[in-house]
Amino acid sequence: MQNETTKIAILVAISTLIFLLMPIFLLLYIRSYNRHKKNHVLEKQNMQQKFEAEMLQARVEVQDQTMQSIATELHDNVGQLLSLTTLTLNSVNLSDEVKAKKKIENSLQLVNKSIKELRELAKLLHGEQLVENGLGHAIDQEISWLSKSGAYELQVNNTLSESDYTSPDKDLIILRLLQEIINNMIKHAQATQIQIDAYLATNVLHLKVKENGVGFNPDEIKARKSGMGLNSIYKRIEMINGKLILNSAPGKGTSISIEIPYP
């Protein structure tokens, strides 16, 4: 009987202890859950802040690149057109009516062409030809600047202009990625041929750039963690859940393939 009483006492004691400890464990669990929840919220806020900061940086860089393109266009294209107009008008001999009329007509054509070029530049200044009109149109504009240099044989397949899909945040970063890639090629590749493909397939945006330049060793660049803007490119692709495939070798050119969930 005493053994039974002892067992009952022990069971009561254990039950009491469990009953007393349960609220403590519950409080500790709630505290731990709230701490993790708070950390998760802070982490999301930090990620959002980083994304917004990166978006702002990309926007500034796109605008800066656009302004550089406009400055080049004003100097190399519009400036030359106006200089040619001035030369043509200065050479007009009013005593030779036929030749004078022809030169004045040519001058008017040059002026009209200059006005058309200035209108296109004005649209750029107002952002009408950046990502607001769609990524495909913005890519066409970048390729247009590249084409006007006359330094490259271009092969372009851009079907994004035919798509109605847009993703303003992603579009801005993708445009900046293309600008960085083109700038790297201009500075380092010594290429003569460039192929650019941009298209959508099964909700994935594909951007491929290939050139026949001097090439490089990708592993060596990664090991140095610097050079050619690759770190910036990788970081931005990671931000929009994309994937980059880079193939290059000394003397064999470079190809870059980017895949991004879209829109």
Rank of each mutant, 00 (worst) to 15 (best):
A100N: 05
D171H: 04
A138Y: 10
I70T: 03
P23S: 07
E54C: 00
V12R: 01
Q2H: 15
P218W: 01
A249V: 00
R35M: 12
H206Y: 09
L205V: 00
I139M: 02
N247M: 10
V60D: 08
A13Q: 05
L154Y: 09
T166N: 07
M47T: 13
K222D: 09
R59Y: 14
R176V: 06
L205I: 01
G229L: 05
Y33W: 09
I10W: 10
L17S: 09
L244K: 01
P261H: 05
D96T: 06
F51T: 03
N212D: 15
G127Y: 04
T85V: 03
K116W: 03
N158C: 06
A138W: 06
T72Y: 15
S95I: 08
Y234F: 12
K210I: 04
V92A: 06
W145A: 10
S163K: 02
L20I: 12
I10G: 05
K38V: 09
I260D: 02
K37R: 15
L118H: 11
N3K: 08
M55T: 03
E128F: 13
A100R: 06
I30Q: 15
L21F: 11
L56R: 14
S32K: 06
L118S: 09
K252L: 11
Y234L: 06
E142L: 11
D219P: 03
E97F: 09
K170L: 12
L130F: 01
I196D: 07
P250T: 00
A249C: 00
H188C: 09
Q48L: 15
I245D: 13
P263N: 09
M1C: 05
G251V: 04
A151K: 12
S167A: 14
S95T: 13
E132G: 01
V41N: 01
Y234I: 03
E128D: 15
L89S: 03
M1E: 13
L21W: 11
H137K: 06
K113H: 11
K103N: 13
N106M: 07
K103P: 09
L27E: 10
L81R: 04
Q141P: 10
T16I: 10
G136K: 06
H188E: 03
E120I: 01
V60A: 12
N34Q: 12
Q57P: 00
L89G: 07
S144A: 14
I182F: 02
I186T: 10
A191W: 12
D140P: 05
I173W: 02
L146P: 00
S114I: 05
S69G: 15
Q63P: 01
L27S: 04
R119S: 15
I70C: 08
A53Q: 08
E153G: 08
N203Q: 14
I8V: 08
Q2W: 06
L108N: 14
W145G: 00
N39T: 06
K148S: 13
T192I: 04
D197T: 11
N46T: 10
V156Y: 07
K116T: 13
R176W: 09
V41S: 06
I174C: 11
R176F: 12
S163H: 08
T6W: 06
L56I: 08
H36C: 05
E73I: 01
L172P: 01
S91R: 13
K102T: 09
E4H: 13
N212P: 14
K7S: 09
V41C: 00
E153T: 13
N46Q: 12
I221C: 08
I237T: 04
K222V: 07
N184K: 05
K252N: 10
K102C: 02
K208S: 12
I8A: 14
